[in-house]
Design a protein around this nucleic acid. Structure first.
Length: 719
DNA sequence: GTAGGGTTAG
């Protein structure tokens, strides 16, 4: 540490000006401070002034604490120093300083408020930010002279940042004069609170005011259009820009591209993007995002690869693109590449990576990412914890999900919803309902997604009465407007409970046009509980909406086959073939020692393929002894019965299970993830294997978990 | 006052 040579006999006046101005670090100033105290002279204002002009590191808490304590020991610090202190100390200390100064009866002036309000805007939860905004507002009302545009704009921002957006609007409305910045702050305020239609409304007001929108305003409002997928408003703004002759700068160009990308209009986005001579990083990221969203992940990757200097945001966009496009393995690979290139992830990147792990369903990867989270200071970030809860649930590890959940002190609605949904996925419907009671007791308001989870919990556990009651309370007690997916859950609930006719009536009477998912639930129910007539209707409706829906053909044909209507079954299959529709290939994943192995139906590409088929043969022989015979009801192709048996025995989850058995010992657990729903034969196969081989099997299919133990599955038949 | 990436469901 650098030290200053102090002459112990030098007289006090020299300490004051010369030494103070030559100090360049906080430790040096501290030494001088000690001398000043000994000298008996009060030089704290000069000391404070010098201290606040040093480059104080915002991350260096000790020097900021020191600055705060000097400020608090300075009697009546002048306005200039108060301002600088509010700016430099960081939100928490700035608010503490303000509280003390107010107690000391300091007369604040209009220069104090903007930096103070900025601190209040940035303060964390529970640090008193909102109180500061309200008190400042009180000052402004009491002393009319403080009502200058800077203070009022800062107030608008302060209220908006604290989530009090209607208070912000009230201040904004009473401003005698509003410049373009004031409009911008208000506009941003609505956007930050997710009130995008109000933002658009405000933009309309602005157009008829005497202040003309500039590039910043337009970029903000375009972003609002993008976030809400409001293509028509976005296009109108595009026209407005062209008509009003506002200069198209790089920011605005990127905002436009982003708006079109977000609205799924990739043709227009592409055209605008191609017109840019030098590809802007932001515009490229918007393109990567847009192509990922419409499922053109290869095109997204091509643009991503062309970006010369990749920053954190574009890496994250590409990672999340893979994660959302059913390519979680690629997402994790890219995450490793990102780190190898020296880019550090932030919490938003982590959300995508954790979500990728959840989609992958691989528990070893999940544990690894959790360790990564802890090592990299993301442990206490609520959003990250929420994502971890979901990840563990989806990886079949409910106990770990629960541990993260209970270890989260400040739970928000997403925390509760994730845990409720996790319990639902694992067939713990009653626990999910109990958790909802706890959530209510703790005063957390459920949202629409919470109710999806709860209804889902009921339908996957066969709790019909409870499910109806949940739907009732959602509408009447919580005033959550039921959306299509809520009706979908109720339809699912009724179908699983064999109340097919009632489900059909609900579909016909609900205030939405049913989509393929809703009809699919009914069709699935008809398949399980055998209702040919309703099944035909459901399949017909699905194929009207989506002629390429492979599941509809498959299920309808299964229904006919099960009802011994062979001609009909064949007709459906021929129709499917003539329309060129093919069934999505079954695919299963199995994780061994951190490596994920992929199996397709009838797959022989695995290096240990021979061994796998040998093991499968052995398993079948053992199961036949306990009465197993292949159930071919789910086989679609026109085959002889023997060949069908063979086909069902080649299902991807059976191959994965064989490989799992080769690599595990009795009493352990095999985890398999599958892209489709598990078929009836595989389901009973797994049950039998769990008993015969004394092994636990956790199978995640498209909709839920099946945990096979000692011959029984946790789904109790609801699947 | 500034455009790009985000957790729960489907």
């Amino acid at each position: 540490m650098e030290t200053l040579t102090l002459n112990p006999i030098s007289p006090p006046p020299i300490i004051s000006s010369h030494l103070l101005s030559s100090a360049t670090t906080v430790p040096q100033l501290k030494q001088i401070h000690a001398r000043i105290l000994r000298s008996g002279l009060d030089l704290t204002p000069s000391l404070l002034s010098r201290l606040l002009s040093l480059p104080l590191n915002p991350a260096a808490a000790p020097s900021l604490d020191y600055a705060l304590s000097v400020l608090l020991h300075t009697p009546r610090p002048p306005s200039r120093l108060r301002c600088r202190a509010f700016r430099l100390l960081g939100p928490r200390r700035a608010i503490a300083a303000y509280a003390r100064l107010r107690q000391d009866g300091v007369d604040f002036d209009r220069f104090d408020f903007p930096p103070l309000l900025r601190a209040a805007a940035r303060a964390g939860e529970g640090e008193g930010g909102e109180a500061v905004v309200r008190e400042t507002h009180g000052f402004v009302l009491k002393t009319g002279f403080v009502a200058d545009p800077f203070v009022l704009t800062a107030l608008v921002r302060g209220y908006a940042a604290r989530g009090c957006v209607s208070d912000a609007r009230a201040v904004f409305d009473r401003m005698p004069e509003r410049d373009v910045v004031a409009w911008g702050v208000m506009l941003d305020g609505w956007c930050q609170s997710g009130c995008y239609s109000e933002a658009l409304q405000l933009f309309e007001e602005m157009k008829s005011s005497d202040v003309a929108p500039d590039q910043v305003i337009l970029a903000t409002v375009l972003s609002a259009c993008g976030r809400t997928g409001n293509l028509s408003s976005g296009r109108a703004i595009h026209s407005y820009i062209l008509e009003s002759g506002i200069a198209m700068d790089a920011h605005l160009q990127s905002s436009l591209i982003n708006m079109y990308s977000n609205c799924g209009s990739m043709d227009i986005a592409r055209k605008l993007f191609d017109e840019i001579p030098v590809k802007d990083l932001v515009a490229s990221t918007a393109m990567v995002f847009g192509y990922s969203k419409i499922g053109e992940i290869e095109t997204a990757r091509a643009i991503f690869d062309e970006i010369p200097e990749k920053d954190l945001v574009c890496w994250s966009a590409m990672i999340s693109g893979y994660s959302e496009s059913d390519k979680p393995g690629e997402a994790l690979k890219l995450f490793n590449e990102m780190q190898a290139s020296g880019v550090r992830p932030d919490k938003i990147t982590m959300l995508s990576v954790i979500s990728a792990c959840a989609h992958l369903g691989a528990i070893d990867q999940a544990k690894w990412i959790h360790i990564f989270v802890d090592k990299n200071m993301f442990r206490d970030v609520l959003m990250v914890r929420n994502a971890l809860i979901d990840m563990y649930s989806k990886c079949g590890n409910l106990a770990s999900a629960w541990r993260v959940f209970e270890g989260t002190p400040q739970k928000n609605v997403i925390t509760w919803t994730s845990m409720i949904t996790g319990l639902a996925m694992h067939g713990e419907g009653r626990l999910a309902l109990a958790l909802f009671e706890r959530m209510k007791a703790e005063g957390v308001e459920p949202n629409g997604v919470t109710f999806v989870g709860l209804l889902y919990a009921c339908s996957h556990t066969g709790l019909v009465a409870e499910g109806r009651q949940v739907f009732e309370s959602m509408v009447h007690e919580y005033k959550v407007e039921p959306k299509l997916e809520h009706y979908g859950c109720v339809v699912d609930l009724l179908c699983r409970a064999k109340l097919l006719r009632e489900a059909f009536e609900l579909i016909e009477s609900m205030p939405f046009r049913p989509n393929v998912i809703i009809w699919g639930s009914l069709l699935g129910g008809c398949r399980v509980h055998m209702d040919v007539e309703l099944g035909e209707i459901a399949a017909k409706r699905i194929l009207e909406l989506d002629p390429d829906h492979d599941g509809a053909y498959v299920l309808l044909s299964n229904i006919y086959a099960k009802a011994n209507k062979w001609d009909e079954a064949r007709r459906v299959r021929r129709l499917m073939k003539s329309r060129g529709v093919s069934k999505e290939k079954g695919c299963s994943w199995l994780e061994i020692n951190g490596n994920v192995h992929e199996f397709l139906m009838g797959d022989e590409s695995h290096p240990k393929s021979k061994e796998i088929y040998g093991k499968l043969e052995e398993i079948i022989q053992e199961l036949v002894l306990v009465g197993y015979s292949p159930d071919t009801g789910s086989v679609l192709v026109d085959l002889e019965e023997e060949e069908k048996k063979e086909a069902v025995l080649l299902h991807s989850e059976k191959l994965a299970l064989s490989f799992g058995l080769i690599n595990s010992t009795r009493g352990s657990c095999i985890r398999i993830a599958k892209n489709l729903r598990v078929c009836e034969d595989c389901h009973s196969f797994m049950e039998l294997v769990s008993k015969a081989f004394d092994i636990e099997i956790v199978l995640r299919d498209r909709t839920r978990f099946h945990q096979y133990k000692n011959g029984v599955c946790s789904c109790k038949g609801f699947w």
